[in-house]
Amino acid sequence: MPIIEAKNLFFRYAAAEKYAIRNVSLSIRRGEFVLLTGPSGCGKTTLCRCFNGLIPHFHRGVFEGEVWVCGYSVAETPPNKLSKHVGLVFQNPENQLFCLSVEKDVAFGLENMGLPEAEIRRRVEWALRVTGIEELRHRAPHELSGGQQQKAAIASVLAMEPEVVVLDEPTSFLDPRSALELFDLLKRINEDLGVTIVLVEHRLDLCASIAQRVLAMVDGELALDGSPAEVLCGEAIRLFGVGVPKSIRLYQLLLEAGVELEHPPLSAEELADLVRQKICQ
């Protein structure tokens, strides 16, 4: 059974005239690492909200179709109940830290769940360690940089040990190097703990190589769905205005020039390997 399944999903915000999600059907298997991309305003954040019940419970509007997450129908399960199974990291880190210290924020969800003190302590320590912010534990949110806030927000979601983690542009405040570190962390969580990851990202250059699957949305519709190589090498994606990784672009240019590499490279390292291979042949 898929861990996330949407069937003919439509959603229109109460205040809007246009549907923000139009006829989206998809299914994500347990343990998959999925990249969700698309131009600004195409409905990525809206789709994320459908995965944890904020839509239709928090944001009202016209909701049609079905969404099932971890065996729960989203239309019938409020977000606070779903939060044990699905964690959502929001775009703006500042507005998801409510407490006066990082440690207290990471504990917030666990306290709400009514876990015993020792269990809260164990999970808080784990989440702080895995995100590498142990030394920030007593800082107040306003004493943190944007990137540190982002890590604190991620730690507070991971501590709840959800089966699915949805991250809405979690690297918007990070420099490329910290972004890479974060992707590495997500990859480890995905591989070692089997957590399903849905990552919304614009910077495909940095993360195309870790995803198993890429979904591209355009104007509320799911336009492309396939392996990173399939989706990113196609003609369609460039027409949508999504930045294709430079390694792929180079692959295409080489192809036009008559040099065919074995397969499309998803990162600079992979590209280097393939070129080396080609030269050695």
Binding site: L54, F58, N80, Q96, G114
Partner: peptide, 11 residues
């Protein structure tokens, strides 16, 4: 929105 997503009032 963020509070709802972190199990506010669930227990």
């Amino acid at each position: 929105e963020a509070m709802e997503s972190r199990a506010w009032g669930v227990s």
